[in-house]
């Protein structure tokens, strides 16, 4: 991890993401291996001397203290004079707009305000590294969406380094500089949000970071600069060479990258019929069954054309070559390989 980076760790529950950050914070000791903070090995440094600000999933504000006393706890236990830390405390209170709540006990605050207080508390001890464990998990969806941007802004404005753990891939993508995808205790992939979304190197990432269609196909052979693949009788051309052995492959494509047209005779198009339309608010989701019985999910943003589609309409799907992703067929089977539970 680099200085001043906002890193998100995502993965399904039980993938070990919380254990990982607890090891970093010193709450759990690793059985093997070393942890370095600022190039210094910290395996035997106790929690209180690591200088990490930690925001807990349970929020864990001290219920017997006021919001202000909670926020001052860091400087207080270090025996610092509160007045010397005053500037930092005031700055943080200003940024989080908590001034009118400072005298209240935490229990009467709304979830959002509690979480802000927890963040403020973690920052006043002067930590340059902030660890956030599902900081927004206990909040309403709408509040969550507002607060995540506030979090990022705070971290960037104060020039901190942050590790943010979440199971919500949308949250991670919208605020992270880089994302670590974890699954059963291992890192699956690391990359910027855009890399993970557009060019995931791993099947699981493709599935976990946003929706994707998966097709099982057979490698037919090379052609020009790419390969031809047979998916249930439909032939697709991909302009790149596979880096793996084996004939059986999996193709993936995001539903919003599929172009749906009424006009026949398009090159590489799959013909099919709309079976179901779901309203998603800012877009529509179609389930299309192709002539050779492949279920394809297509997401189209509103356009005058999309609004006109009805169930039963015959359509042509264009799977653009550049957005198709090619993977070897996993040994454990496709369903196992992408399963979240």
């Amino acid at each position: 991890m680099e200085d001043k980076e906002y890193l998100c760790i995502i993965g399904p529950s039980g993938c070990g993401k919380t254990t990982l950050i607890k090891c970093i914070a010193g709450i759990i000791k690793p059985d093997e291996g070393e942890i370095y903070i600022d190039d210094r090995i910290v395996n035997d440094t106790p929690i209180q001397d690591r200088g990490i600000g930690y925001v807990f999933q349970e929020i864990a504000l001290f219920p017997h203290m006021s919001v202000y006393d909670n926020i001052c706890y860091g400087p207080f236990v270090k025996g610092l004079d509160i007045s010397s830390a005053k500037n930092l405390i005031n700055e943080i209170l200003n940024m989080l707009e908590l001034w009118d709540r400072v005298k209240d006990p935490p229990s009467i605050l709304s979830g959002g305000a509690q979480q802000k207080t927890a963040v403020a508390r973690a920052l006043t001890s002067g930590s340059r590294l902030l660890i956030l464990d599902e900081p927004l998990g206990s909040l309403d969806a709408k509040v969550r969406r507002v607060l995540r941007y506030e979090l990022r802004r705070l971290v960037k404005d104060l020039g901190l380094t942050a590790i943010h753990v979440t199971h919500d891939q949308e949250e991670a993508m919208s605020i992270a500089d880089r994302i670590v995808v974890m699954r059963s205790g291992e890192i699956v992939e690391i990359g910027t949000p855009l890399e993970l979304y557009l060019r995931p190197k791993n099947l699981f990432t493709a599935h976990f970071v946003g929706e994707a269609n998966f097709f099982i196909g057979d490698l037919l052979g090379e052609e020009d600069e790419g390969v031809k693949i047979d998916v249930n009788g439909n032939i697709l051309y991909i302009p790149c060479k596979p880096s793996f052995e084996g004939k059986k492959v999996v193709l993936a494509i995001r539903p919003e990258f599929i172009i749906m047209k009424k006009t026949n005779g398009l090159k590489d198009a799959w013909r099919g019929m709309i079976e179901k339309i779901t309203f998603l608010g800012s877009s529509l989701r179609f389930e299309v069954c192709t002539e050779n019985d492949i279920m394809v999910i297509v997401k189209n943003p509103f356009s005058s054309e999309a609004l006109g589609w009805r169930v039963g309409d015959r359509v042509n799907l264009v799977l653009s070559r550049d957005s198709l992703l090619l993977y070897p067929y996993p040994k454990e089977g496709l369903e196992k390989a992408i399963s979240i539970e």
Binding site: E170, M173, S174, P193, L194, Y197, G210, E211
Partner: peptide, 9 residues
């Protein structure tokens, strides 16, 4: 600019 996956804001 904020990237949400299928959308950009």
């Amino acid at each position: 600019a904020s990237f949400l996956g299928d959308f950009v804001i």
